[in-house]
Design a protein around this nucleic acid. Structure first.
Lengths: 131, 131
DNA sequence: CAGTATCTACGAAACAAATAGTAATTCAAG
DNA sequence: CTTGAATTACTATTTGTTTCGTAGATACTG
């Protein structure tokens, strides 16, 4: 089958699986299934299907080990994080990242510590650019 | 029909419509349709269906004006922005907003100006907390 | 090598999202 | 009133997502 282009974003379940694979670096159907919370109780074959779809969409590649496949992300998590943020920014924040952060720091739940970390990150980036 | 509880997030098209309603404050099917880009060419009845669904999900209310309905968001945009950010943060950033911002400022496309704005926002928030 | 475990591939069922057509209603204007 | 344009309510179609069962392959175990 010809692989279709233009798969941008992961679906809900695909993201759930990718998070596990990113944490493990790679894994089999069994490995992923073992990482799911017990209350998830997903059938083995369902997990296998999801991974096959992820491979078809080229979010992972697979190699053989014994009788099973080992799946590994083709896309680094930070790359996907950035892609998701860009998507959210465009769709809900008029493509203005600053207004996204504005909303974030409006959150009263946000700890002083988190705020401090955020400022440190921004400062470091500003220094590196000018220096 | 009994309204189901627990509608959290908007679908793609629902968000497209809500963005228009947030900008207009309120509007009819026709109003929304007029705001869509011309290449969108969505049937009138499709737009009406989407708005009816939004009402059913309680993202908007409607009142009658003449023979048509006027739809108005029940949810402020900034509230929904925060909800979306929380969702993304949980699903993709281990619920750590600082790491979300970290990814954002890693983006080379991000302008110096945007970075400055972000820092100003954080600074202001930090000052207000301690002051 | 027979039996069992486990695995993959495929198909399909169940559900949700997006779009649009049809029928019925409403209102305004001749 | 009757007609016609615009509107709503409902239904249907198509497509994508999520889940799982069945069948066949593969490897291990005695």
């Amino acid at each position: 089958m010809k692989p279709k282009r233009k798969y941008e974003l992961l679906t809900e379940v695909e993201l759930e699986f990718m998070n596990i694979l990113w944490a493990l670096d790679e894994g089999t159907v069994r490995d992923v299934l073992d990482q799911l919370p017990s209350e998830r109780s997903l059938a083995y074959t369902s997990a296998a299907t999801i991974l096959r779809i992820l491979e078809q969409k080229e979010f992972v590649t697979s190699r053989n080990r014994g009788k099973s496949h080992v799946y590994k992300p083709t896309l680094a998590k930070d790359v996907y994080q950035m892609r998701s943020l860009k998507d959210l920014s465009v769709k809900l924040f008029d493509d203005a990242p600053a207004s996204l952060v504005a909303r974030l720091v409006d959150d009263n739940e946000l700890s002083e510590e988190a705020l401090g970390q955020i400022r440190a990150l921004v400062d470091r980036r500003l220094k590196n650019d000018t220096g």
